[in-house]
């Protein structure tokens, strides 16, 4: 399997758990990013994700390589879903394995922070009365 993928298929954690598990592993952290209905009093109906897929997969793989340099002995798989996602569906899965748990926790958090900063994936929130690309910053004067 491709351990760093962007896909429109439903994400299920088991295959990523299996991918990172091997004989030297004592801990796997499995992070799921979930579509949330309520954000600061605003009700989201659903989300639309889009990606620059080849570059996104490349940067996900770079994040994985970076983690292995920082914390040797880890194995990483990351999958991000695109397309329309309903409330409580899984948008991203990060699996990190390590001989011991501390590094598995730390490296997993590092991965999601890097994803949010660098990977070309965009989320549009759709509400009852409007929609907006998250991260949208127009410099246009009001």
């Amino acid at each position: 399997m491709n351990p760093f993928e962007v896909t429109s298929e439903v994400l299920s954690p088991n295959r990523y758990l299996r991918y990172v598990t091997h004989a030297e592993v004592g801990a796997v952290t499995l992070f799921s990013g979930i579509v949330r209905e309520w954000t600061n009093g605003m009700r989201t109906l659903f989300l639309e994700y889009e990606a620059y897929v080849p570059m996104a997969e490349k940067i996900l793989a770079e994040i994985g390589a970076d983690i292995q340099r920082k914390w040797p002995g880890t194995r990483i798989a990351i999958a991000h879903r695109i397309g329309r996602l309903q409330i409580s569906e899984t948008a991203v899965i990060i699996a990190v394995s390590s001989p011991h748990r501390q590094i598995a926790y730390k490296a997993n958090e590092f991965a999601i922070e890097q994803i949010k900063k660098h990977v070309p994936i965009w989320k549009k929130e759709i509400w009852e009365d409007g929609e907006k690309w998250v991260g949208e910053q127009s410099n246009k004067p009001l």
Partner: peptide
Amino acid sequence: FIPPVSGG
């Protein structure tokens, strides 16, 4: 052209 990203 890559607008501010918002994955995760």
